[in-house]
Amino acid sequence: MIKKLHENRLIFVTGKGGVGKSTVTAALGQALANQGRRTLILETDTYSAMEDLFNFRSSGLKPVKLGPNLWASNLLAEDCFIATLRRFVPSERVARAIINNRVARVFFKAAPSVNEVTILDQVRVFFEETEGGRPRFDHVIVDLPASGHAVTFLNVPATMSGMMRGLGPIAKMAMQVSDIIKDERTTAVVAVCLPEEMPVNETIELSENLRTIIGRPLTLAMVNMVHRPPLDASQRQVFERLRHELSPSDEREANTLFDGSSTHANPIVRLIEGNAMALGWHDRDQKYLRILHERMREPVVEIPVFFEANGTEIVDHIASFLIHGDNDAEQNLAS
């Protein structure tokens, strides 16, 4: 399922907060690592989700090894700024003078987009890093910030370079980063969403904006937490008739069915109502998936929902799903 990403050495993962973007990013990294590919997961100055999912503490810009073939680092803007400066200022002494200059610090802290550009420059450094004559990492996966729009973030280098009229070392660096982002053979942009109205619409918009603003396509949409159908079509007919007979017709009674004050002792009614809710989720998911398929030409991967409470377990399940497909299909459980 992720074979098509093997070509992409740089993978940007985007998605609004709440869609499980970081979990999917972690799973994608884990899946690639499981396939023997040396993979680095980068976060961009954020409240790190990877630290919880992989149970480690990041240390500066240096990638922390999480397991076979897997590394991670949280790129703090401050660290990236200093690293970028050191690359561009010939003398260590001058670099230090700028870093320690209160005016320059305040300027860079307050100026919009400086953070983004230096973070992306650090991404480029990892992407280009070699070890023994070959790239140090087969894949660099970037978990883009949940806030704002991926297109704005990915377009920052081009904007910055334009703002500097392409002159000066930072503008040249920004242009290089911008070229890497545009190169659809090397670089993938993956959108994670949920089968819900807003995330689906945003993904469709993202796909259009990537083409028109950045000039490259979206590589893949991954729809997270898709509810499996609780019942097949014929079972569903039986279910609907059964529900019609058993369910409370009174809305007030239906509301109290689960609040502990119910006089409805019949657990079968609760079983039926619970499943009715699950069927509703499935129907809603399918509706938004149809919209996504109709309005977008990029491939769509549907990741089933895993109810396990533990984030690390969910990462393993999704990683396994990305390699082997859904081996947790309802039939296996039910039969």
């Binding site: 007919q237 008739r241 007979e245 499943n275 309802e330 459980l333």
Partner: peptide, 25 residues
Amino acid sequence: HGLDNAHDAATMRLRLETHYARLAM
């Protein structure tokens, strides 16, 4: 309600219960 085959009924019951157990979780 239409599932008069005992095996089919048991299969469906198990499915409903499996799903309900997940919701409970």
